[in-house]
Nucleic acid binder design. Structure first.
Lengths: 183, 183
DNA sequence: GTCTATACTTAGATAGAC
DNA sequence: GTCTATCTAAGTATAGAC
């Protein structure tokens, strides 16, 4: 029997994900991940072709996680209530794992599988918007506006850009309300 | 007479700024900047203490540039027209120098001088919002919502996140219109 | 599958001559 | 102020033994 496995593909991805979630993608070094799962750096190359292959795997799980969080949050029968809850869940996700969140709009993964994963994660929200505005084109427009606001808000919050005082919570909720308003 | 100067502080900052504007902050290596101004890497250390000192200088000029662009765009007598023009200028700035733009909400420069620079750059817009909504608190809230939308939109646009088809221009302008609407 | 050893690369930064 | 030479540190990746 050869050397028994100390780790697995899944464990490595999870470790990488945790590392990134907390500290950002720049700390994702092969050595750091290896140390976290209890092996030496070179051993990881038996599981992944290279660093970028690992990173890509992490990106996919992060997108899937966000999708789950959104789907779980948006279960209300009322569309606006559901969308509001999804927005809150989106923000919570970004606050809890800022590094992981920043992966989601990464340039890197532009291939079909990553795009599909992203689309799938955002689908529940899109369906609600469609139901709310009837028209698919209008829903797309609204989706973009809403996503832009959310992404911008959580990014600025993470960057500590809201330093001018005043009520940040109020800005968030009144932004959501405004963007979900009739028209 | 000692060795004559081949470059200057300002020239170095400008070179670094151009480099970042086009390719992003990660290409800002001491060597690359030095090459661009026509000297060797170590020579830069006679002008700047280290890389971060240079980067900080670049950040300040970028914020100032954005401020100038906003101020120049927002000259209309009508507040909404001015704000709309500023939003367009903001987007143009981000599109023309994506790397420079990404510096603006950088965590790095949290000191008083950088904050003051940022505040100064955004002041014309804030004044318009105040004039539009009367109340300073409400203007702050609106400023945050609007800035979040703008920042999110241009970031996503730069990341190529708008891949689902549909009219991106319409999303931008109807977002602006919505956020500048009466209430 | 894991290990040690090692090659290679890139980047920041300093020393000292001119 | 600029240069060459050099140091250091970090990180990716491979080779070959076990």
């Amino acid at each position: 029997m050869p050397t028994p496995s100390k780790t697995s593909r899944d464990e490595i991805v999870a470790a990488a994900r945790d590392l990134i979630a907390e500290f950002g993608v720049e700390v994702l070094t092969v050595q750091a991940v290896a140390e976290r799962v209890g092996v030496r750096g070179p051993s990881l190359y038996k599981h992944f072709a290279d660093r970028s292959a690992l990173l890509r795997e992490v990106e996919l799980t992060v997108v899937a996680d966000l999708g789950s969080a959104l789907a779980a949050a948006g279960r209300s029968r009322d569309h606006r209530t559901a969308l509001r809850a999804m927005a809150i869940a989106y923000r919570r996700f970004a606050r809890e794992s800022p590094g992981a969140y920043s992966l989601i709009f990464n340039l890197q993964s532009a291939d079909a599988e990553c795009q599909a994963a992203r689309r799938h994660a955002l689908e529940p929200a899109l369906l609600r918007l469609e139901a709310l505005w009837g028209d698919r084109g209008l829903a797309f427009t609204r989706a973009r506006i809403l996503t832009s606001f959310l992404h911008g808000f959580v990014s600025m919050e993470a960057a500590g850009a809201f330093r001018m005082g005043g009520n940040i919570e109020e800005a968030f909720f009144s932004g959501i309300a405004l963007l979900l308003s009739k028209d």
